[in-house]
Design a protein around this nucleic acid. Structure first.
Lengths: 134, 134
DNA sequence: CAGCATCCTACCGGATACTG
DNA sequence: CAGTATCCGGTAGGATGCTG
């Protein structure tokens, strides 16, 4: 119904070879998703972002930003001052993607209690099936 | 503006310790996203899903489905027949999540040409800066 | 401050073989 | 058919040290 091919679109993420898979992974990856989410709030410097995205290492933030910049989702603005100052912000394309992403993130956050109770149910049912030291 | 804390929500994916991070990773992970996307089209048997999600291994599909079932996003219906028949489908919660996810996937698919041209631009600019053999 | 280079480990994930 | 169990390589990703 909403499939890419059915709409005649040239890119279909369900195909192994489609380049959209790579970009989707940059966008939804562990740090990509949080970085885009953070940047939706505005422009940030490198270390500001690092503090905002709790737990990300310097290396991974750097890699993530490069991938997102390469995909045209993030704009990097470096000022040749001393000390250096670099600001990151979303491009129009990045904003478009980030909005969909945030809708997803907020949906998960909102329904988190249901998820946690589902987990308890699942684990209890399993524990019942495997009495001891499963 | 759209931050979890600013809305007074109890779960904030930007915090390292928040359980919503784990669920978000199940949902947006390499195979989780494609599996949810596929299941949005209807109910599927295990091997139907495997064919639909091009490239997924038996092992990863199995793991992915278990994680999604545990999080209450997927319902597993096993019939004790021989040969066995197991059907997977989204729960109402899963449908809610999958719709947001598909909006994101389709957005990426739609704008894929812009992504690819951004990549070419990025790579050319880099190549110009590093004349030969980096 | 804003990174890059290096090292090292955990685990993601594919291939294969086996079970009910 | 619908999985589980095992082995194994590649890489994601953390820690550390250095640069401009």
């Amino acid at each position: 119904m909403t499939t890419a091919q059915e709409q005649g679109l040239p890119y279909d993420v369900f195909s192994r070879a489609c380049p959209s898979r790579g970009t989707l992974e940059h966008v939804t990856g562990r740090w990509g998703a949080l970085t885009l989410g953070a940047l939706h709030e505005g422009s940030f410097r490198f270390n500001e972002l690092r503090r905002r995205v709790d737990g990300v290492s310097e290396k991974m933030l750097s890699q993530t930003l490069q991938a997102l910049e390469r995909d045209g989702l993030v704009h990097r603005e470096a000022q040749p001052t001393n000390p250096p100052r670099v600001d990151y912000e979303l491009t129009p394309l990045g904003r478009e993607v980030a909005e969909r992403l945030l809708a997803l993130i907020h949906c998960v956050e909102r329904r988190m209690d249901d998820v946690l109770s589902a987990r308890r149910g699942y684990d209890e049912a399993r524990a019942a099936r495997t009495p001891l030291t499963g």
